[in-house]
Design a protein around this nucleic acid. Structure first.
Lengths: 253, 253
DNA sequence: TAGTGGTCTAGACCACTGA
DNA sequence: CAGTGGTCTAGACCACTAG
């Protein structure tokens, strides 16, 4: 560090800024603390506000900062471990399920979902909306697609929609014997509705977890869950033991 | 759609742009095709280049586009499913392992890693670098931390470093009986070295998969693998069956 | 060397929050 | 209401790629 080496071969300003800020966060700030506003910070570092923002965006993406319009930028707590499927295989709505049913409607699913469910593209399915809350904050929103054939005994006399119906559908689902489930995780960005549910702006990065529940050789239900990427670390496999934080592991070399 | 409704309550331009572009990608472009350059596109839509770029950035984050400096913007192929742990539990370097060992050195790991491994903070461990390639493209880079105590029989006469030593270390690891493993997935951004290995720019979004291998009640190895978030969809649990694409499922309502 | 995307600037206005 | 972050503009220059 003695010299400002030539090795700054062409390091972008925002990248250097990010490094400096990251170190400052470690040493000079504590969780929840409010940073100076963007205009002040930019002036302090002698860069345009847009450049400063580029650094802040990266730090927010890495879960180190939290920015809220009208409020300010605060130091984020370490990411929270959120368990996916504690037991190897379990229906949604079973015991130990961390999700809260919010609503249930009947509608035609997107074509991709219909194909996965092997239902006709015009066929309506049960769509259960659920949300997952942790430490009082929403962390995930889910759409659960369930073909009518998976819950044949569902009484039509039950509530036509709402949380009560959602619970009824999930209860019926338990009667099937779950063969196995397939999971996939990928990066996405929050749509308008998801953003509202997750208390973020549209376009915010999310981890999309797609789960296919397989019973009797066919896909009995399909879940598409979007987790806040800024606050969540998805854990799976056998739990237990001390928590580990990749974020911390990756710092420095 | 008949009217440009007032419901454009305040939809940002870049958001609307993203929607328009996304639909155009579906209907008017095919995979690999090159889009007009940013200056032309911006002019065509009557927005500043920065605004256009904001839309492109989102689409790239969602894996719909691929941008390369000096080349242009192309339509990306659907994300590729990348399997994490086909069998429930297996040591790295075992049969069916998709990784290619690249190097092996001995060094003091980051503090977070040392804590997870329960080694002293000044203690050196074996660090195996591996890379994962799919369809000729690099998709992930990994750092594997292995305490010396996990491979006590390792002969000091072997190659002091390089791929040969990496293979030797992994071979020794197989002798331990794997009890279980813990996985975690979170969003991160590529560091300078990772970026080079993944053929991306620094700061590119990555999915960081942390795996703790547990044997004899202690952490026998720790893997930190970074996957390209733009091209990968991580799959786990029992495989088999038709591939599903959350990206497609999430389109439209 | 021409053309691409990546970085950066110095402004402006807006939407939202909280006092 | 004042102050915050979010959006947007119209430029400029740079790093990289390929012919």
């Amino acid at each position: 560090m003695g010299t400002t080496q030539l090795e700054s071969v062409q390091e972008p300003k925002y990248w250097h800024l990010k490094t400096v800020l990251s170190e400052a966060l470690d040493s000079e700030f504590s969780v929840g603390e409010i940073l100076p506003n963007e205009r002040d910070l930019a002036a302090r570092f002698g860069v345009a506000r847009a450049t400063l923002r580029q650094a802040l965006e990266q730090l927010e993406l890495e879960g180190r900062l939290q920015r809220r319009r009208g409020v300010g930028t605060t130091v984020a707590p370490p990411r929270e471990g959120v368990s996916l499927g504690t037991g190897p295989q379990a229906w949604p709505g079973g015991p130990e399920d961390a999700w809260q049913p919010a609503d249930c409607t009947a509608a035609v699913p997107p074509a991709g979902v219909a194909d996965a469910l092997e239902t006709g593209r015009d066929e309506t399915v049960h769509i259960v909306r659920r949300s997952r809350v942790s430490h009082g904050r929403p962390v995930a929103a889910e759409l659960l697609y369930i073909p009518r054939s998976s819950v044949p005994e569902l009484s039509g006399i039950d509530a036509p929609s709402g949380a009560a119906r959602a619970r009824a559908v999930l209860r019926e689902l338990q009667r099937l014997e779950l063969e196995r489930q397939e999971n996939a995780v990928e990066l996405g960005s929050a749509g308008a509705e998801e953003a509202k549910e997750l208390d973020r702006l549209p376009g915010a990065p999310v981890l999309v977890v797609t789960t296919r529940f397989i019973a009797l050789g066919r896909t009995a239900a399909l879940s598409v869950a979007t987790y806040r990427a800024d606050t969540c670390r998805l854990t799976f496999g056998d739990p237990g033991g001390v928590e580990i934080h990749a974020g911390i592991q990756r710092q420095a070399s």
